[in-house]
Design a protein around this nucleic acid. Sequence first.
DNA 1: CCTTACATTGGAATGGTTCTCATTTGTTAT
DNA 2: ATAACAAATGAGAACCATTCCAATGTAAGG
Lengths: 154, 154
Amino acid sequence: MASNAVMEETLQVLKDHKLRVTPQRHIILAYLVSHHNHPTVETIRDALSKELPNIGASTIYNTLNTFVDHHLVVELQNGDGSTHYDYFGSPHYHAICTNCGRIVDVTYPGFSETEKSLEEKTAEISGYMISGNHMEVYGLCPECQIKLGIKKND
Amino acid sequence: MASNAVMEETLQVLKDHKLRVTPQRHIILAYLVSHHNHPTVETIRDALSKELPNIGASTIYNTLNTFVDHHLVVELQNGDGSTHYDYFGSPHYHAICTNCGRIVDVTYPGFSETEKSLEEKTAEISGYMISGNHMEVYGLCPECQIKLGIKKND
DNA sequence: CCTTACATTGGAATGGTTCTCATTTGTTAT
DNA sequence: ATAACAAATGAGAACCATTCCAATGTAAGG
């Protein structure tokens, strides 16, 4: 359940981006801000079934696409066939398990510099006018390492 | 049309990976090696309509998925709704146009070190056993900058 | 308030990808 | 060579995430 602080924060975010404040948008954004589940549309629909029992799938898609357009949210594919969404608060990237699909956020001191440097080099080499990036790292999550009986030699 | 050298090379690649050498696999791989179009399944089917007039869509999907499993090929999404494929020869990443979807390969001296460092930091932080990564940079390609009347201030 | 442009609904349509299964083909061992 | 087996192919059906559409509802500004 989203706290009052989150509701106020997300209200402001919507206004800042000149988006019409509908209950659906407000509640979906609050959900994304207060969870880091990297949910799918289905996950969101289930999670909000109490607050928004009659929401249409199209609305969730529309809302998320709007958020993506406004760079509030990023799309992620983990190979399970549906798109996952992540509220883009502070700079981070994702580690994705190739076995179970689990997605975790990763960052480290100096990551912003790495990002910036990558973007600058890309602009220079390709002539693109850069607006963003995605970095993803693939591997086996700790649980799947155990599940598959793989030992880590460190 | 793939040269003899490419056909020999790809034959060897298939054998090295212990993949059964079928004409379909051989020709598709040769196409990927000798083109850097980041093709979709449809693009490939059209391009090979002379050499493989009766190939089924499933075969192309199966073949590409097999190549992906063997890390010969990577999948790319540029937002147009279908998956693009790229033969993974030498280390590089992709710049993707947010307007027209154009994908270009990018690399620079020291890129491998950047990659390696990212993977090592990720392993340390997340506990994942890393097997690979994807980096993508988004922006407007030079053509779309012109098309949209955006001037570059450098 | 009233208006109007925009958002939401839900059901149908779309289309990329996977599935099924009968048939064909590579590969390995004889 | 040839036989035998496992694996790949092809055609179409099935699947399912996502988009489209037309009708209805609603937020925001004057």
